[in-house]
Amino acid sequence: MSNIETEIKTKKTKRLLSIDALRGFDMFWILGAEGLFSALFIITGLSFFNLAANEMLHSAWHGFTFYDLIFPLFILLSGVSLGLAAKPIAGLSKQQKNEKYRHAIKRLVLLIVLGVLYNHGWGTGIPADFGEIRYVSVLGRIGLAWFVAAMLVWHFKTKTQLYITAAIFVGYWIILSFVSIGDFGGSNLGPELSINAWVDQTMLPGIRYQNLAVDPEGLLSNLGSILNCLVGVFIGRLMSKQKQVANVLLRNLLIIGVVSLSAGWLLNSFLPVNKTLWTPTFVLVTCGWSTLFLALFYWLIDMQNWQTWAKPFAIIGMNSIIIYLGTSLMNWQYLVNSFFGGILSPLSEGWQALWTIVFLLLLQWLLLAWMYRHKIFIKV
């Protein structure tokens, strides 16, 4: 058995391998793997690969593709980890509480800063114009969702957390459907005149993504992503309570997933599923799919003990933040050309595209495997 396999097996006693593997599987698709289906379609001409490639694109506006699931799944899993570990802090000393608060604030600020770094900060370089920064980001949203969920877990009972979650769900629905300011809002959910667009254009500092009317990681839609994290907290707490009765836990995860997914699509006619606005129906659909994927990984890995195939994904999942930053800050294509250009250049277009992606993924995974072997984990 390799050192990597031994270390993962040892860590399994402390954390569920299925969660790390699912997190890694989620990250796998934004490291470059989303292009595999397009390359395979060029090679084979099979319509299946064309359909799969279309699922690797974000929805134009209303609707849902599996690529839309990547971000909310990651947020839900951060909530699951919180639900498995976090407890109320009322019984802690003042010093222990302050340490908790410092960690939470540091994590939030660091993720916001790293998000700006991922966005390449100032596109115009230094001297800096603070009006040219895109302050909102994927990492910033992850940090904010986790921070709010942590504060609720630390300070409120489970029943109160449920009430707050329901209030956010209903409140955000009401805001999207009924609140209007001038031409914005009042059930207008288009890309130009939603209430989210008014909030981003009026209150969001810096620039918006591609100067769109509403930023995909804008201010108001944080309410939706906070819901994904809170649902993850409840699922994590359920997993903690029912870990000794795996069959019951699996059944409950499947029920939660199916009910949430069904409810999301049933309510779609009243409030469309929309990723950019992160509508409450989008929350239901993504929480449904996320829970079903978690149930599948839990059954395969932790119940059936089929772990070999999951270990490469777990290695990604253990350093997910650092490799995500690497997709923006490192020129992986240059490294692929440097190492494998002589192999790739004689190939046809389709095969060249396919092997470029394979080599790109391999280089990233080898870096993560090296970090894992040396017990280097970049946690925020």
Rank of each mutant, 00 (worst) to 15 (best):
L249K: 06
H120T: 12
L117D: 07
N252I: 07
G79N: 03
T44D: 08
S38Q: 13
E132C: 05
F270R: 08
S78P: 12
M203K: 07
W332S: 09
L176A: 07
M318F: 14
Q364A: 08
L110A: 05
W265E: 03
P191H: 11
H58C: 04
E55K: 00
R373A: 08
A167C: 08
S18G: 00
R237I: 06
E34F: 13
L344T: 10
I207P: 09
G342F: 05
I207E: 12
Q364R: 06
W154D: 04
L77A: 10
N268E: 01
L69E: 04
A166H: 08
M1F: 03
H120C: 02
I43D: 03
G143D: 00
E34H: 13
I174Y: 12
A90N: 15
A314Y: 07
A263N: 10
W299D: 00
P191I: 10
K14Q: 14
G35A: 09
I235F: 07
S78W: 12
W278M: 14
L219I: 15
R237V: 08
W154G: 03
W332C: 06
M303F: 00
G32W: 10
E132D: 11
G350V: 01
K106T: 15
L46D: 15
V170W: 06
N188Y: 04
L362M: 03
A33I: 06
I43L: 02
L46V: 12
T6Y: 13
L254P: 03
N247H: 01
S187C: 13
L363T: 05
I105S: 06
K11F: 13
W173K: 05
I30F: 05
F169E: 15
R208T: 14
K243T: 13
I75W: 03
F340Q: 01
K375A: 11
N211Y: 15
T44L: 04
N252E: 11
L40Q: 05
N119Q: 05
A213P: 04
T158P: 12
L176Y: 03
I142Q: 01
E132G: 13
P280R: 13
F184S: 04
L360I: 08
D68C: 01
A145S: 05
L354G: 11
A167G: 12
I70F: 00
Y135R: 00
V245Y: 15
Y298D: 01
W154M: 07
S221D: 09
F377P: 08
Y101S: 04
T124K: 09
L82G: 09
G186R: 10
S93A: 02
Y118D: 01
S78Q: 14
V245D: 15
T165A: 14
K11V: 11
V138W: 06
S269A: 14
P216I: 05
I164S: 01
V231H: 09
D26Y: 02
M371R: 11
I175T: 12
Q201M: 12
Q201I: 03
G185N: 01
V285E: 02
P88G: 09
V199E: 09
L335T: 12
L76N: 10
W198K: 02
L363C: 10
A52C: 02
K375V: 07
F25D: 01
L347M: 02
L162C: 14
N188C: 05
N337W: 06
Q201S: 14
I133F: 07
G264Y: 03
F313G: 13
S260T: 14
A85C: 10
E192H: 02
I43M: 05
K241V: 10
G232T: 08
L117M: 14
V179G: 00
F37G: 03
T202A: 09
L354Y: 07
